[in-house]
Design a protein around this nucleic acid. Structure first.
Lengths: 110, 110
DNA sequence: TGCCTATTTGGCAATATAGCCAAATAGGCT
DNA sequence: AGCCTATTTGGCTATATTGCCAAATAGGCA
């Protein structure tokens, strides 16, 4: 039942895991507007370059971005724009949670 | 730039992280077909009940499922069906990766 | 009450992830 | 060649995640 699909589910999980980090989500969002080089992303996020480079490597391994070396810098771009559609759904999760939180608070205050 | 959105991106990341595990993806897929109790999911996945219970707790914390206790068992159901739409996109990532892999192999064989 | 089943929680060991620094690699320029 | 910038890689520590077992909790039923 599960064992049969395990391999496939692991592959799916890898893609999701690659997205499941605030810096990497930022990068995805940023790349949605166009390609960016490592130095630009590093500047925007404000972490060590090596950290950003590793995040980009995770995204690349997962098949979410592709890189293009030009001169001495490397530009990354989104390979699968459809992942952006997903964020709307994630937002609705967050919103309904927020709403529930408000409801709970209201309940407590009565 | 990033700091301003960090909180929000962390919230998004939490939802994605909750999905990013093969067993939890299986559960989501299964719940797409209707509610299931912990014992059913445990049976299907073949891990310890406590492990499944913790997976369900992760999904619940993330706002992805809701639980409903009836008698001495607890039924879980999907709270946000839109996440299912996302899998099509994840599949396309996997497929294009597979295709690239084939291309690379072909290249090596020449 | 006592027992059985279903589920959750605590705790532990193994493994994975994140982020930094330092060092290696690569391209451009003088 | 020598130097500078951009990027990646190795290595380390801190932290988080996973999965099991054992124990706690809760409901149903004799």
């Amino acid at each position: 039942m599960y064992q049969k699909r395990k391999r496939h589910l692991e592959a799916r999980a890898k893609v999701l895991k690659a997205m499941a980090h605030p810096s990497r989500l930022f990068i995805i969002d940023e790349l949605a507007h166009g390609e960016r080089c490592v130095c630009e992303l590093t500047e925007m996020i404000g972490a060590d370059v090596s950290t950003i480079s590793k995040h980009l490597s995770v995204l690349k391994q997962a098949g979410l971005v592709i890189d293009d070396k030009r001169g001495n810098q490397v530009f990354y771009q989104l390979r699968v724009p459809c992942i952006l559609n997903f964020f709307g759904c994630v937002e609705s999760v967050l919103e309904s949670q927020a709403q529930e939180h408000v409801d709970l608070l209201a309940l407590v205050e009565k």
